[in-house]
């Protein structure tokens, strides 16, 4: 059910300037905390009373959370990095172009001026556009609580619609993306041409040797309660000849592993499943075409 738009609820507001201050603050506060990054999900959800935080911790002033760096063979992205900064970043474009490709059409330009990559993942919408490429790239996220810090593979991060393993006093500080050479493809199907939420999205990363798929990693959004990795397809394609038939078969698997929620709005279950097939096929074709020229 779509909710009414109400005036913002009352809350306390803190705006720490460093991770250290944040930790101190988190130790004092009890609960009912929401971190405010770009606010493009949070404020919407507050107006709709989907989220009613008692305390808002604005993390926009924590400089340490905003960076894009290459360290050894990984790209590290601070969670409060704005999506437009990611799109424009040459480090990202050169090393993980799949991510650039996927968020280029996320929401709209002015939203991307505020919206952050951390926010997109923490919201954990089944249709979050940054999730499939990051899943396909084997990314992981760093979670930090006042007295602990851990790295969680993104594939274990999402647990349900709008649910993650993150605890309320944990902040996502950075995203770690391994760099690999290969081909990339991302496709998103919305319901109009511009500025639209994905009905289904598919991201794939692949390496082709000779005539065979050496390694394919593929992830889908909008076809299950969370964004998912399609391991079945990956296993099936490993070492298999690149052909219309193998791609067609992979596409069929995409359809069969799709389990969209019956309550999901915006498209029927049957259409989502069918589109998982079509987009998977197209994404694989693109990879095959690019690698073989």
């Amino acid at each position: 059910m779509e909710e009414e738009i109400r005036p913002l609820p009352k809350f306390d507001y803190f705006s720490p300037h460093s991770l250290h201050d944040l930790s101190t603050l988190l130790k004092q506060l009890k609960g009912g905390i929401s971190f405010l990054a770009g606010g493009t999900d949070l404020l919407v959800n507050m107006k709709k009373r989907i989220t009613i935080p008692k305390v808002i911790i604005d993390i926009n002033r924590i400089q340490e959370l905003s960076f894009i760096e290459k360290r050894s063979n990984n790209i590290h992205v601070g969670s409060v990095t704005r999506l437009n900064n990611l799109i424009e970043s040459s480090i990202v474009q050169e090393n993980v172009p799949l991510l650039t490709e996927a968020i280029r059409f996320l929401a709209s330009h002015p939203i991307r001026n505020r919206a952050t990559i951390g926010g997109n993942l923490c919201t954990a919408s089944p249709a979050a556009d940054a999730a499939p490429p990051l899943l396909a790239l084997n990314a992981s996220v760093k979670l930090k609580s006042p007295d602990d810090e851990k790295i969680v593979p993104l594939s274990e991060f999402f647990v349900g619609p709008r649910q993650t393993v993150r605890k309320h006093n944990e902040i996502l500080t950075e995203i770690i993306i391994p760099c690999e050479k290969g081909s990339n493809a991302f496709m998103k199907l919305g319901r109009r041409r511009g500025f639209t939420l994905s009905v289904v999205s598919v991201a794939a990363f692949g390496i082709i040797k000779g005539d065979k798929f050496e390694d394919i990693r593929i992830a889908l959004g909008g076809v299950a309660p969370t964004p998912i990795r399609a391991y079945k397809i990956e296993e099936m394609l490993k070492g298999v000849e690149v052909s219309d038939r193998s791609i067609e078969k992979a596409a069929e698997i995409a359809k069969s592993i799709s389990k969209p929620s019956k309550r999901a709005k915006r498209a029927s279950v049957e259409y989502r499943e069918a589109m998982a097939r079509v987009l998977t096929k197209r994404v694989l074709m693109k990879i095959a075409f690019e690698e073989r020229g």
């Binding site: 770009g38 606010g39 604005d58 002015p110 939203i111 001026n113 505020r114």
Partner: peptide, 13 residues
């Protein structure tokens, strides 16, 4: 200098 949505920002920000 960048376009943003003022409905999705708090004034205090």
């Amino acid at each position: 200098g960048k376009p943003v949505r003022s409905c999705l920002l708090l004034a205090v920000q």
